[in-house]
Design a protein around this nucleic acid. Structure first.
Lengths: 254, 254
DNA sequence: ATCATAGTCGTCTGCCTGACGATAAACACT
DNA sequence: AGTGTTTATCGTCAGGCAGACGACTATGAT
Protein backbone atom coordinates (compact mmCIF):
# COMPACT_ATOMS: atom_id res chain seq x y z
CA UNK A 1 0.00 0.00 0.00
CA UNK A 2 1.20 3.49 -0.74
CA UNK A 3 2.43 5.72 2.06
CA UNK A 4 -0.23 7.88 3.55
CA UNK A 5 -0.80 10.93 1.45
CA UNK A 6 -4.32 11.95 0.58
CA UNK A 7 -3.18 13.10 -2.83
CA UNK A 8 -2.00 9.63 -3.81
CA UNK A 9 -5.43 8.04 -4.04
CA UNK A 10 -8.53 9.18 -5.86
CA UNK A 11 -11.44 10.47 -3.78
CA UNK A 12 -14.77 8.70 -4.07
CA UNK A 13 -18.24 9.52 -2.92
CA UNK A 14 -19.80 6.57 -1.14
CA UNK A 15 -23.56 6.10 -1.01
CA UNK A 16 -25.98 3.45 0.13
CA UNK A 17 -28.86 2.45 -2.10
CA UNK A 18 -31.78 0.43 -0.82
CA UNK A 19 -33.75 -2.35 -2.45
CA UNK A 20 -36.80 -2.37 -0.17
CA UNK A 21 -39.12 -5.23 -1.00
CA UNK A 22 -42.56 -6.08 0.25
CA UNK A 23 -45.50 -8.20 -0.85
CA UNK A 24 -48.74 -6.40 -1.60
CA UNK A 25 -51.76 -7.77 -3.32
CA UNK A 26 -50.05 -10.98 -4.39
CA UNK A 27 -47.14 -9.14 -6.03
CA UNK A 28 -43.57 -8.49 -5.05
CA UNK A 29 -43.11 -4.74 -4.88
CA UNK A 30 -40.12 -2.45 -4.49
CA UNK A 31 -39.95 1.00 -3.00
CA UNK A 32 -39.01 3.65 -5.53
CA UNK A 33 -38.70 7.41 -5.13
CA UNK A 34 -39.01 10.09 -7.77
CA UNK A 35 -35.87 12.10 -8.35
CA UNK A 36 -36.34 15.82 -7.85
CA UNK A 37 -33.06 16.90 -9.37
CA UNK A 38 -30.85 16.12 -12.30
CA UNK A 39 -29.49 13.82 -13.39
CA UNK A 40 -32.47 11.62 -14.21
CA UNK A 41 -34.82 14.31 -12.86
CA UNK A 42 -38.38 13.02 -12.67
CA UNK A 43 -37.30 9.40 -13.06
CA UNK A 44 -37.87 6.74 -10.47
CA UNK A 45 -34.87 5.55 -8.49
CA UNK A 46 -34.05 3.44 -5.51
CA UNK A 47 -33.91 5.33 -2.21
CA UNK A 48 -30.44 6.08 -0.96
CA UNK A 49 -28.00 8.73 0.06
CA UNK A 50 -24.48 9.59 1.03
CA UNK A 51 -22.68 7.79 3.80
CA UNK A 52 -21.67 10.26 6.46
CA UNK A 53 -18.08 10.88 7.43
CA UNK A 54 -18.08 8.80 10.59
CA UNK A 55 -20.90 6.39 9.86
CA UNK A 56 -20.73 2.68 9.27
CA UNK A 57 -22.23 1.33 6.06
CA UNK A 58 -24.93 -0.65 7.84
CA UNK A 59 -25.80 2.38 9.96
CA UNK A 60 -26.15 4.53 6.88
CA UNK A 61 -28.45 1.96 5.29
CA UNK A 62 -30.57 1.75 8.44
CA UNK A 63 -30.78 5.53 8.62
CA UNK A 64 -31.87 5.87 5.01
CA UNK A 65 -34.42 3.12 5.50
CA UNK A 66 -35.84 4.92 8.48
CA UNK A 67 -35.89 8.25 6.68
CA UNK A 68 -37.67 6.85 3.64
CA UNK A 69 -40.12 4.47 5.23
CA UNK A 70 -40.12 4.98 8.97
CA UNK A 71 -39.11 1.34 9.29
CA UNK A 72 -36.70 0.35 12.00
CA UNK A 73 -34.04 -2.08 10.87
CA UNK A 74 -33.51 -5.25 12.84
CA UNK A 75 -30.23 -5.80 14.55
CA UNK A 76 -28.42 -7.99 12.05
CA UNK A 77 -26.93 -10.00 14.91
CA UNK A 78 -30.31 -10.89 16.37
CA UNK A 79 -31.14 -14.53 15.63
CA UNK A 80 -34.85 -14.13 15.08
CA UNK A 81 -36.52 -11.28 13.24
CA UNK A 82 -37.93 -8.67 15.56
CA UNK A 83 -40.42 -5.97 14.80
CA UNK A 84 -38.19 -4.16 12.35
CA UNK A 85 -37.37 -4.90 8.76
CA UNK A 86 -34.67 -7.30 7.70
CA UNK A 87 -31.66 -5.44 6.34
CA UNK A 88 -28.52 -6.92 4.81
CA UNK A 89 -25.78 -5.80 2.52
CA UNK A 90 -26.39 -6.75 -1.10
CA UNK A 91 -23.48 -5.76 -3.34
CA UNK A 92 -21.41 -2.76 -4.31
CA UNK A 93 -21.60 -0.93 -7.61
CA UNK A 94 -18.81 1.36 -8.73
CA UNK A 95 -18.55 1.51 -12.49
CA UNK A 96 -16.76 4.74 -13.42
CA UNK A 97 -19.64 6.26 -15.38
CA UNK A 98 -22.59 5.14 -13.30
CA UNK A 99 -23.18 8.66 -11.96
CA UNK A 100 -22.47 11.38 -14.53
CA UNK A 101 -21.63 13.93 -11.86
CA UNK A 102 -18.75 12.23 -10.13
CA UNK A 103 -17.19 8.96 -9.11
CA UNK A 104 -19.70 7.33 -6.81
CA UNK A 105 -19.42 3.90 -5.24
CA UNK A 106 -22.77 2.67 -3.99
CA UNK A 107 -23.10 -0.06 -1.40
CA UNK A 108 -26.52 -1.51 -2.09
CA UNK A 109 -28.54 -3.05 0.72
CA UNK A 110 -31.57 -5.29 0.66
CA UNK A 111 -34.48 -4.67 3.03
CA UNK A 112 -37.54 -6.86 3.44
CA UNK A 113 -40.61 -5.58 5.19
CA UNK A 114 -44.24 -6.55 5.77
CA UNK A 115 -46.87 -4.76 3.75
CA UNK A 116 -48.10 -2.45 6.49
CA UNK A 117 -46.16 0.76 6.02
CA UNK A 118 -47.72 3.24 3.64
CA UNK A 119 -44.99 4.77 1.54
CA UNK A 120 -44.23 8.23 2.72
CA UNK A 121 -41.82 10.57 1.06
CA UNK A 122 -39.07 11.56 3.41
CA UNK A 123 -36.12 13.87 3.42
CA UNK A 124 -34.62 14.13 -0.01
CA UNK A 125 -37.29 12.55 -2.21
CA UNK A 126 -40.22 14.24 -3.89
CA UNK A 127 -42.48 11.25 -3.67
CA UNK A 128 -42.32 7.54 -3.03
CA UNK A 129 -44.39 4.55 -4.03
CA UNK A 130 -44.43 0.79 -4.14
CA UNK A 131 -44.07 -0.56 -7.66
CA UNK A 132 -44.35 -4.19 -8.74
CA UNK A 133 -40.88 -5.45 -9.52
CA UNK A 134 -42.19 -7.20 -12.59
CA UNK A 135 -43.12 -3.86 -14.09
CA UNK A 136 -39.85 -2.28 -13.02
CA UNK A 137 -37.68 -5.04 -14.44
CA UNK A 138 -39.54 -5.61 -17.72
CA UNK A 139 -38.33 -2.36 -19.18
CA UNK A 140 -36.17 -3.84 -21.93
CA UNK A 141 -38.54 -3.38 -24.84
CA UNK A 142 -41.40 -5.07 -23.08
CA UNK A 143 -44.69 -3.27 -22.77
CA UNK A 144 -46.13 -2.26 -19.44
CA UNK A 145 -49.79 -2.60 -18.75
CA UNK A 146 -49.89 -0.49 -15.60
CA UNK A 147 -51.86 2.71 -15.66
CA UNK A 148 -48.69 4.62 -14.91
CA UNK A 149 -45.65 2.81 -16.22
CA UNK A 150 -42.70 3.41 -13.96
CA UNK A 151 -40.26 3.84 -16.87
CA UNK A 152 -36.66 2.79 -16.61
CA UNK A 153 -34.99 3.33 -13.26
CA UNK A 154 -32.29 5.97 -12.93
CA UNK A 155 -28.57 5.19 -12.89
CA UNK A 156 -27.84 1.45 -12.71
CA UNK A 157 -30.70 0.95 -10.30
CA UNK A 158 -32.39 -1.52 -12.61
CA UNK A 159 -29.43 -3.84 -12.25
CA UNK A 160 -29.30 -3.31 -8.49
CA UNK A 161 -32.99 -4.08 -8.18
CA UNK A 162 -32.61 -7.21 -10.30
CA UNK A 163 -29.76 -8.39 -8.08
CA UNK A 164 -31.76 -7.68 -4.95
CA UNK A 165 -34.81 -9.53 -6.22
CA UNK A 166 -32.67 -12.49 -7.21
CA UNK A 167 -31.06 -12.48 -3.75
CA UNK A 168 -34.48 -12.51 -2.10
CA UNK A 169 -35.76 -15.23 -4.40
CA UNK A 170 -32.86 -17.52 -3.68
CA UNK A 171 -32.52 -16.73 -0.01
CA UNK A 172 -36.05 -17.70 0.95
CA UNK A 173 -35.20 -21.15 -0.38
CA UNK A 174 -32.74 -22.02 2.32
CA UNK A 175 -33.54 -19.54 5.08
CA UNK A 176 -36.55 -18.47 7.10
CA UNK A 177 -36.30 -15.02 5.56
CA UNK A 178 -39.77 -15.18 4.04
CA UNK A 179 -41.16 -14.47 7.49
CA UNK A 180 -39.64 -10.99 7.18
CA UNK A 181 -42.43 -10.25 4.68
CA UNK A 182 -45.10 -11.23 7.21
CA UNK A 183 -46.40 -9.38 10.25
CA UNK A 184 -45.38 -10.73 13.61
CA UNK A 185 -48.30 -13.17 13.61
CA UNK A 186 -49.31 -14.88 10.41
CA UNK A 187 -50.89 -18.02 9.03
CA UNK A 188 -49.37 -20.74 6.93
CA UNK A 189 -51.46 -19.54 4.02
CA UNK A 190 -50.11 -16.02 4.30
CA UNK A 191 -46.58 -17.35 4.35
CA UNK A 192 -47.35 -19.46 1.30
CA UNK A 193 -48.66 -16.43 -0.56
CA UNK A 194 -45.35 -14.72 0.19
CA UNK A 195 -43.46 -17.54 -1.48
CA UNK A 196 -45.86 -17.52 -4.38
CA UNK A 197 -45.51 -13.77 -4.89
CA UNK A 198 -41.73 -13.72 -4.60
CA UNK A 199 -41.21 -16.72 -6.85
CA UNK A 200 -44.13 -16.03 -9.13
CA UNK A 201 -45.38 -19.61 -8.96
CA UNK A 202 -48.27 -21.51 -7.42
CA UNK A 203 -47.48 -23.91 -4.59
CA UNK A 204 -49.51 -26.85 -3.36
CA UNK A 205 -51.11 -25.74 -0.09
CA UNK A 206 -50.96 -29.23 1.41
CA UNK A 207 -47.33 -29.93 0.68
CA UNK A 208 -46.40 -26.41 1.75
CA UNK A 209 -48.22 -26.84 5.02
CA UNK A 210 -46.47 -30.13 5.69
CA UNK A 211 -43.09 -28.65 4.86
CA UNK A 212 -43.20 -25.50 6.97
CA UNK A 213 -44.91 -27.06 9.98
CA UNK A 214 -42.55 -30.01 9.82
CA UNK A 215 -39.34 -27.98 9.77
CA UNK A 216 -38.21 -27.63 13.39
CA UNK A 217 -37.79 -24.04 14.54
CA UNK A 218 -39.31 -22.46 11.45
CA UNK A 219 -42.73 -21.67 12.93
CA UNK A 220 -43.99 -21.69 16.48
CA UNK A 221 -47.75 -21.64 17.19
CA UNK A 222 -48.74 -18.27 18.58
CA UNK A 223 -51.19 -19.15 21.30
CA UNK A 224 -53.15 -21.21 18.83
CA UNK A 225 -55.35 -18.24 18.01
CA UNK A 226 -57.04 -18.10 14.64
CA UNK A 227 -58.13 -15.47 12.18
CA UNK A 228 -59.78 -15.39 8.85
CA UNK A 229 -58.83 -14.51 5.35
CA UNK A 230 -61.66 -16.33 3.64
CA UNK A 231 -62.46 -19.88 4.56
CA UNK A 232 -61.81 -21.97 7.59
CA UNK A 233 -59.93 -20.24 10.40
CA UNK A 234 -56.20 -20.84 10.40
CA UNK A 235 -53.71 -21.27 13.13
CA UNK A 236 -51.50 -18.29 13.89
CA UNK A 237 -47.74 -18.63 14.02
CA UNK A 238 -44.70 -16.56 14.80
CA UNK A 239 -41.26 -16.94 13.26
CA UNK A 240 -39.26 -19.52 15.17
CA UNK A 241 -35.61 -19.29 16.06
CA UNK A 242 -34.35 -21.19 13.03
CA UNK A 243 -32.62 -19.09 10.40
CA UNK A 244 -31.53 -21.78 7.96
CA UNK A 245 -33.88 -24.31 6.39
CA UNK A 246 -32.34 -27.73 6.04
CA UNK A 247 -33.47 -29.31 3.82
CA UNK A 248 -34.40 -26.18 1.92
CA UNK A 249 -37.74 -25.17 0.48
CA UNK A 250 -37.58 -26.26 -3.15
CA UNK A 251 -38.44 -23.74 -5.80
CA UNK A 252 -40.41 -25.42 -8.61
CA UNK A 253 -38.64 -25.64 -11.94
CA UNK A 254 -39.49 -23.10 -14.57
CA UNK B 1 -29.66 13.67 -3.32
CA UNK B 2 -27.79 16.83 -2.58
CA UNK B 3 -26.90 19.15 -5.42
CA UNK B 4 -23.55 18.48 -6.93
CA UNK B 5 -20.87 20.10 -4.86
CA UNK B 6 -17.80 18.10 -3.90
CA UNK B 7 -17.70 19.78 -0.54
CA UNK B 8 -21.13 18.47 0.44
CA UNK B 9 -20.14 14.84 0.76
CA UNK B 10 -17.23 13.25 2.58
CA UNK B 11 -14.39 11.86 0.52
CA UNK B 12 -13.55 8.18 0.86
CA UNK B 13 -10.65 6.08 -0.28
CA UNK B 14 -11.87 2.93 -2.00
CA UNK B 15 -9.77 -0.21 -2.11
CA UNK B 16 -10.20 -3.80 -3.18
CA UNK B 17 -9.03 -6.59 -0.91
CA UNK B 18 -8.67 -10.15 -2.13
CA UNK B 19 -9.44 -13.42 -0.45
CA UNK B 20 -7.50 -15.76 -2.71
CA UNK B 21 -8.12 -19.38 -1.81
CA UNK B 22 -6.51 -22.57 -3.03
CA UNK B 23 -6.17 -26.15 -1.88
CA UNK B 24 -2.68 -27.40 -1.13
CA UNK B 25 -1.70 -30.56 0.62
CA UNK B 26 -5.23 -31.35 1.74
CA UNK B 27 -5.74 -27.92 3.34
CA UNK B 28 -7.62 -24.81 2.31
CA UNK B 29 -5.08 -22.01 2.09
CA UNK B 30 -5.33 -18.26 1.63
CA UNK B 31 -2.85 -15.88 0.07
CA UNK B 32 -1.43 -13.38 2.56
CA UNK B 33 1.18 -10.70 2.09
CA UNK B 34 3.43 -9.15 4.69
CA UNK B 35 2.91 -5.45 5.20
CA UNK B 36 6.02 -3.37 4.65
CA UNK B 37 4.70 -0.16 6.13
CA UNK B 38 2.67 1.03 9.07
CA UNK B 39 0.07 0.58 10.17
CA UNK B 40 0.36 -3.10 11.05
CA UNK B 41 3.91 -3.13 9.67
CA UNK B 42 5.28 -6.66 9.53
CA UNK B 43 1.86 -8.22 9.98
CA UNK B 44 0.19 -10.43 7.43
CA UNK B 45 -2.69 -8.98 5.47
CA UNK B 46 -4.87 -9.80 2.50
CA UNK B 47 -3.55 -8.51 -0.81
CA UNK B 48 -5.27 -5.43 -2.11
CA UNK B 49 -4.89 -1.87 -3.20
CA UNK B 50 -6.55 1.34 -4.20
CA UNK B 51 -9.12 1.48 -6.94
CA UNK B 52 -7.92 3.82 -9.66
CA UNK B 53 -9.82 6.91 -10.64
CA UNK B 54 -11.41 5.49 -13.79
CA UNK B 55 -11.38 1.80 -13.01
CA UNK B 56 -14.30 -0.48 -12.33
CA UNK B 57 -14.30 -2.45 -9.09
CA UNK B 58 -14.04 -5.82 -10.82
CA UNK B 59 -11.22 -4.52 -12.98
CA UNK B 60 -9.34 -3.32 -9.93
CA UNK B 61 -9.74 -6.73 -8.30
CA UNK B 62 -8.54 -8.50 -11.43
CA UNK B 63 -5.57 -6.18 -11.67
CA UNK B 64 -4.57 -6.73 -8.06
CA UNK B 65 -4.97 -10.47 -8.48
CA UNK B 66 -2.72 -10.40 -11.49
CA UNK B 67 -0.14 -8.24 -9.75
CA UNK B 68 0.01 -10.43 -6.67
CA UNK B 69 -0.20 -13.88 -8.19
CA UNK B 70 0.15 -13.63 -11.94
CA UNK B 71 -3.26 -15.22 -12.22
CA UNK B 72 -5.62 -14.12 -14.93
CA UNK B 73 -9.17 -13.69 -13.77
CA UNK B 74 -11.93 -15.41 -15.67
CA UNK B 75 -14.53 -13.35 -17.41
CA UNK B 76 -17.35 -13.36 -14.86
CA UNK B 77 -19.87 -13.60 -17.66
CA UNK B 78 -18.36 -16.78 -19.08
CA UNK B 79 -20.57 -19.77 -18.28
CA UNK B 80 -17.81 -22.32 -17.71
CA UNK B 81 -14.54 -21.66 -15.92
CA UNK B 82 -11.67 -21.06 -18.29
CA UNK B 83 -7.98 -21.14 -17.59
CA UNK B 84 -8.06 -18.22 -15.17
CA UNK B 85 -9.13 -18.00 -11.59
CA UNK B 86 -12.69 -17.51 -10.51
CA UNK B 87 -13.24 -14.01 -9.20
CA UNK B 88 -16.38 -12.59 -7.64
CA UNK B 89 -17.32 -9.75 -5.39
CA UNK B 90 -17.61 -10.78 -1.76
CA UNK B 91 -18.74 -7.88 0.44
CA UNK B 92 -17.82 -4.33 1.34
CA UNK B 93 -16.28 -3.22 4.61
CA UNK B 94 -16.38 0.39 5.66
CA UNK B 95 -16.43 0.77 9.42
CA UNK B 96 -15.14 4.25 10.27
CA UNK B 97 -12.10 3.11 12.23
CA UNK B 98 -11.04 0.10 10.20
CA UNK B 99 -8.00 1.94 8.81
CA UNK B 100 -6.40 4.32 11.30
CA UNK B 101 -5.03 6.57 8.58
CA UNK B 102 -8.23 7.60 6.87
CA UNK B 103 -11.72 6.61 5.89
CA UNK B 104 -11.33 3.60 3.65
CA UNK B 105 -14.10 1.54 2.13
CA UNK B 106 -12.84 -1.81 0.94
CA UNK B 107 -14.71 -3.89 -1.60
CA UNK B 108 -13.55 -7.43 -0.86
CA UNK B 109 -13.43 -10.00 -3.63
CA UNK B 110 -13.13 -13.75 -3.52
CA UNK B 111 -10.77 -15.58 -5.87
CA UNK B 112 -10.42 -19.33 -6.22
CA UNK B 113 -7.46 -20.84 -7.99
CA UNK B 114 -5.83 -24.22 -8.53
CA UNK B 115 -2.74 -25.01 -6.53
CA UNK B 116 -0.23 -24.47 -9.31
CA UNK B 117 0.93 -20.89 -8.91
CA UNK B 118 3.84 -20.40 -6.57
CA UNK B 119 3.22 -17.29 -4.51
CA UNK B 120 5.33 -14.46 -5.75
CA UNK B 121 5.55 -11.10 -4.15
CA UNK B 122 4.52 -8.41 -6.54
CA UNK B 123 4.31 -4.67 -6.58
CA UNK B 124 3.53 -3.32 -3.17
CA UNK B 125 4.14 -6.35 -0.95
CA UNK B 126 7.35 -7.41 0.71
CA UNK B 127 6.54 -11.08 0.58
CA UNK B 128 3.61 -13.38 0.01
CA UNK B 129 2.74 -16.90 1.06
CA UNK B 130 -0.06 -19.40 1.24
CA UNK B 131 -1.26 -19.95 4.79
CA UNK B 132 -3.81 -22.52 5.94
CA UNK B 133 -7.03 -20.73 6.72
CA UNK B 134 -7.47 -22.81 9.82
CA UNK B 135 -4.31 -21.28 11.29
CA UNK B 136 -5.29 -17.79 10.15
CA UNK B 137 -8.77 -17.94 11.63
CA UNK B 138 -7.95 -19.65 14.94
CA UNK B 139 -6.28 -16.57 16.31
CA UNK B 140 -8.79 -15.85 19.06
CA UNK B 141 -6.87 -17.26 21.97
CA UNK B 142 -6.25 -20.56 20.27
CA UNK B 143 -2.73 -21.87 19.94
CA UNK B 144 -1.05 -22.36 16.61
CA UNK B 145 1.12 -25.36 15.97
CA UNK B 146 2.72 -24.10 12.77
CA UNK B 147 6.43 -23.50 12.74
CA UNK B 148 5.78 -19.88 11.96
CA UNK B 149 2.44 -18.77 13.28
CA UNK B 150 0.89 -16.17 10.99
CA UNK B 151 -0.36 -14.00 13.88
CA UNK B 152 -3.53 -12.00 13.62
CA UNK B 153 -4.25 -10.44 10.27
CA UNK B 154 -4.04 -6.67 9.86
CA UNK B 155 -7.08 -4.38 9.83
CA UNK B 156 -10.37 -6.30 9.74
CA UNK B 157 -8.91 -8.82 7.33
CA UNK B 158 -9.62 -11.68 9.71
CA UNK B 159 -13.32 -10.98 9.34
CA UNK B 160 -13.03 -10.58 5.59
CA UNK B 161 -11.20 -13.88 5.32
CA UNK B 162 -13.78 -15.61 7.48
CA UNK B 163 -16.56 -14.27 5.27
CA UNK B 164 -14.74 -15.37 2.14
CA UNK B 165 -14.14 -18.86 3.47
CA UNK B 166 -17.76 -19.18 4.48
CA UNK B 167 -18.84 -18.03 1.03
CA UNK B 168 -16.63 -20.65 -0.61
CA UNK B 169 -17.83 -23.37 1.75
CA UNK B 170 -21.47 -22.70 1.07
CA UNK B 171 -21.13 -21.97 -2.63
CA UNK B 172 -19.56 -25.30 -3.54
CA UNK B 173 -22.70 -26.90 -2.15
CA UNK B 174 -24.99 -25.65 -4.85
CA UNK B 175 -22.63 -24.67 -7.66
CA UNK B 176 -19.89 -26.26 -9.68
CA UNK B 177 -17.42 -23.78 -8.21
CA UNK B 178 -15.24 -26.49 -6.67
CA UNK B 179 -13.83 -27.12 -10.12
CA UNK B 180 -12.20 -23.70 -9.87
CA UNK B 181 -9.80 -25.25 -7.38
CA UNK B 182 -8.81 -27.95 -9.87
CA UNK B 183 -6.60 -27.77 -12.96
CA UNK B 184 -8.33 -27.93 -16.30
CA UNK B 185 -8.26 -31.74 -16.23
CA UNK B 186 -8.85 -33.58 -13.00
CA UNK B 187 -10.14 -36.82 -11.56
CA UNK B 188 -13.18 -37.43 -9.41
CA UNK B 189 -10.86 -38.17 -6.51
CA UNK B 190 -9.09 -34.83 -6.88
CA UNK B 191 -12.42 -33.04 -6.90
CA UNK B 192 -13.47 -34.97 -3.82
CA UNK B 193 -10.29 -33.94 -2.02
CA UNK B 194 -11.19 -30.33 -2.81
CA UNK B 195 -14.55 -30.72 -1.10
CA UNK B 196 -12.92 -32.49 1.83
CA UNK B 197 -10.32 -29.76 2.27
CA UNK B 198 -12.76 -26.87 1.95
CA UNK B 199 -15.34 -28.42 4.26
CA UNK B 200 -12.86 -30.14 6.54
CA UNK B 201 -14.75 -33.43 6.43
CA UNK B 202 -14.29 -36.88 4.93
CA UNK B 203 -16.66 -37.90 2.15
CA UNK B 204 -17.56 -41.37 0.98
CA UNK B 205 -15.69 -41.90 -2.32
CA UNK B 206 -18.42 -44.13 -3.75
CA UNK B 207 -21.34 -41.83 -3.03
CA UNK B 208 -19.32 -38.83 -4.16
CA UNK B 209 -18.47 -40.54 -7.42
CA UNK B 210 -22.09 -41.40 -8.02
CA UNK B 211 -23.20 -37.87 -7.25
CA UNK B 212 -20.79 -35.92 -9.42
CA UNK B 213 -20.90 -38.26 -12.38
CA UNK B 214 -24.67 -38.42 -12.16
CA UNK B 215 -25.25 -34.67 -12.18
CA UNK B 216 -25.76 -33.62 -15.81
CA UNK B 217 -23.34 -30.98 -17.01
CA UNK B 218 -21.12 -31.05 -13.95
CA UNK B 219 -18.31 -33.13 -15.43
CA UNK B 220 -17.52 -34.16 -18.97
CA UNK B 221 -15.03 -36.96 -19.66
CA UNK B 222 -11.86 -35.50 -21.10
CA UNK B 223 -10.90 -37.99 -23.79
CA UNK B 224 -11.14 -40.76 -21.26
CA UNK B 225 -7.44 -40.48 -20.53
CA UNK B 226 -6.19 -41.61 -17.16
CA UNK B 227 -3.46 -40.67 -14.74
CA UNK B 228 -2.25 -41.79 -11.40
CA UNK B 229 -2.25 -40.42 -7.93
CA UNK B 230 -1.72 -43.72 -6.17
CA UNK B 231 -3.89 -46.65 -7.00
CA UNK B 232 -5.93 -47.60 -9.99
CA UNK B 233 -5.90 -45.12 -12.87
CA UNK B 234 -8.79 -42.72 -12.86
CA UNK B 235 -10.79 -41.14 -15.60
CA UNK B 236 -10.01 -37.53 -16.42
CA UNK B 237 -12.74 -34.91 -16.56
CA UNK B 238 -13.18 -31.27 -17.38
CA UNK B 239 -15.70 -28.92 -15.86
CA UNK B 240 -19.00 -29.12 -17.73
CA UNK B 241 -21.23 -26.24 -18.61
CA UNK B 242 -23.44 -26.50 -15.56
CA UNK B 243 -22.96 -23.77 -12.99
CA UNK B 244 -25.67 -24.67 -10.50
CA UNK B 245 -26.01 -28.07 -8.88
CA UNK B 246 -29.59 -29.18 -8.50
CA UNK B 247 -30.02 -31.01 -6.21
CA UNK B 248 -27.03 -29.62 -4.36
CA UNK B 249 -24.06 -31.46 -2.94
CA UNK B 250 -24.95 -32.01 0.71
CA UNK B 251 -22.44 -30.96 3.33
CA UNK B 252 -22.39 -33.50 6.16
CA UNK B 253 -23.70 -32.26 9.50
CA UNK B 254 -21.25 -31.20 12.18
C1' DA C 1 -79.47 -25.63 3.03
C1' DT C 2 -76.07 -25.17 -0.31
C1' DC C 3 -71.93 -23.45 -2.24
C1' DA C 4 -67.43 -21.44 -2.30
C1' DT C 5 -63.21 -20.82 0.06
C1' DA C 6 -59.37 -21.99 2.76
C1' DG C 7 -57.09 -24.94 6.10
C1' DT C 8 -55.43 -29.45 7.65
C1' DC C 9 -54.54 -34.47 7.70
C1' DG C 10 -53.31 -38.72 4.93
C1' DT C 11 -51.65 -41.76 1.28
C1' DC C 12 -48.76 -43.27 -2.31
C1' DT C 13 -44.94 -43.28 -5.45
C1' DG C 14 -40.50 -42.04 -7.09
C1' DC C 15 -36.02 -40.08 -6.35
C1' DC C 16 -32.06 -39.20 -3.75
C1' DT C 17 -28.81 -40.08 -0.12
C1' DG C 18 -26.14 -42.52 3.36
C1' DA C 19 -24.12 -46.83 4.50
C1' DC C 20 -22.13 -50.27 3.14
C1' DG C 21 -20.05 -54.74 0.03
C1' DA C 22 -17.49 -56.06 -3.93
C1' DT C 23 -14.51 -55.76 -7.83
C1' DA C 24 -10.74 -53.63 -10.69
C1' DA C 25 -6.35 -51.80 -11.73
C1' DA C 26 -2.29 -49.87 -10.66
C1' DC C 27 2.29 -49.84 -7.47
C1' DA C 28 5.53 -51.55 -3.71
C1' DC C 29 7.29 -54.94 -1.71
C1' DT C 30 9.24 -59.78 -0.98
C1' DA D 1 5.17 -64.43 -9.35
C1' DG D 2 2.68 -63.45 -5.13
C1' DT D 3 0.94 -60.48 -1.59
C1' DG D 4 -0.46 -56.23 0.35
C1' DT D 5 -1.81 -51.39 -0.24
C1' DT D 6 -4.03 -47.80 -2.47
C1' DT D 7 -7.42 -45.76 -5.23
C1' DA D 8 -11.22 -46.07 -8.59
C1' DT D 9 -15.67 -47.72 -9.84
C1' DC D 10 -20.01 -50.46 -9.82
C1' DG D 11 -23.99 -52.32 -7.04
C1' DT D 12 -27.34 -53.01 -3.41
C1' DC D 13 -30.44 -51.71 0.12
C1' DA D 14 -33.12 -49.02 3.42
C1' DG D 15 -34.80 -44.50 4.98
C1' DG D 16 -36.27 -39.84 4.08
C1' DC D 17 -38.33 -36.38 1.57
C1' DA D 18 -41.02 -34.18 -2.19
C1' DG D 19 -44.72 -34.12 -5.69
C1' DA D 20 -49.37 -35.49 -6.78
C1' DC D 21 -53.59 -35.84 -5.09
C1' DG D 22 -57.86 -37.53 -2.09
C1' DA D 23 -60.53 -36.47 1.92
C1' DC D 24 -62.36 -33.92 5.58
C1' DT D 25 -63.17 -29.57 8.36
C1' DA D 26 -64.67 -25.03 9.43
C1' DT D 27 -65.99 -20.65 8.22
C1' DG D 28 -68.77 -16.94 5.31
C1' DA D 29 -71.88 -15.96 1.32
C1' DT D 30 -76.17 -16.87 -1.30
Amino acid sequence: MSPYDPSTFPAFAVTVDLVVLTVRRHALCALVVRRGEPPFQGRWALPGGFVRADEDLADAAARELSEETGLCADDPKAPAPGNGAHLEQLATYGAPGRDPRMRVVSVAHLALSPDLPAPRAGGDANSARWAPVEALLNQDGGFVREDEQPAQLAFDHGQILADGVERARSKIEYSSLATAFCPSEFTVGELRRVYEAVWGVALDPRNFHRKVTGTPGFLVPSGGTTTRQGGRPAQLFRAGGATVLNPPMLRPEI
